[in-house]
Amino acid sequence: MDRAELAAFLRSRRERIEPADVGLPAGPRRRTPGLRREEVAQLAFISTEYYTRLEQARGPRPSREVLTALARALRLTDAERDHLHLLAGAPPGPPPGPSREVRRSILDLVHRLPQSAAFVTSATLEVLAWNELAAALMEDFSALPRRERNLARLAFLGPCPQGRRLYGVSDVEAFARHAARRLRTAVARYPDDPEVGALIRELLDGSAEFARLWASHDVDTAPTLRKTFQHPLVGPVTVNCDALDLTDRDQQVVIYTAVPGSPSEEALRLLSVIGTQRMDAPR
Rank of each mutant, 00 (worst) to 15 (best):
P91W: 09
Y50R: 08
A215L: 06
R64C: 07
R30C: 07
A57K: 10
A41M: 06
R146M: 12
T221A: 10
L86P: 01
F210G: 02
I17G: 03
A90Y: 01
S207R: 07
V239Q: 05
P263T: 03
D108L: 15
A176V: 01
T221H: 09
R58L: 13
L87D: 08
T185W: 10
A134E: 10
P232Q: 09
V237S: 14
R269D: 10
P260F: 11
A41T: 00
R11L: 06
R181T: 05
V259E: 15
F9N: 03
R64P: 09
L133V: 06
R14I: 08
Q115H: 13
G93F: 05
S122A: 14
R182E: 15
E202Y: 05
D248H: 14
R53W: 14
A4S: 15
R29I: 00
K227W: 10
H231P: 10
R100S: 11
E195M: 02
T238K: 09
C160E: 13
S122L: 06
N240S: 13
S216H: 02
P282R: 13
M138N: 11
A20D: 11
L10M: 11
A136T: 12
L107S: 11
A198Q: 06
P260I: 02
P145Q: 02
P60M: 05
R147N: 07
A71V: 02
A208Q: 10
L204G: 00
E148M: 12
E65L: 05
V172M: 04
E132W: 06
T221E: 03
Y51F: 14
R53Q: 12
